[in-house]
Amino acid sequence: MKVAITSTGQSLDSNLDQRFGRCAFFVIYDTETGGVEILPNPNKDAEEGAGPASVQMVASKDVKKIISGEFGVKIKSLLDSLKIQMVVYKEPEKTVKSVIDMLNK
């Protein structure tokens, strides 16, 4: 299963980005293969609609779970319709790597 983790930077040592739609990067982690893909978020500075556009992008990568600090109100119903699970993890000090470790436990 693929999981998207919002990240403040381009490495696994970067911290978990607290904003979903306007995060700096998405780290897409595949729990089966252990593969990692890091994508810059093109919607980071969008004036409006960053949330839905980010869902659209992540969904196109066949992600089934998203981990981030917070999600906008509009996001939940969109994720529900796509059957993507949303995990709110308010830990700005945690690194992406430690989140991945948690997934593997």
């Binding site: 969008a46 796509l82 059957k83």
Partner: peptide, 11 residues
């Protein structure tokens, strides 16, 4: 960003 489009999920 007003059209939410995920063709793989037919949404």
């Amino acid at each position: 960003n007003a059209i939410f489009y995920v063709p793989t999920a037919k949404v």
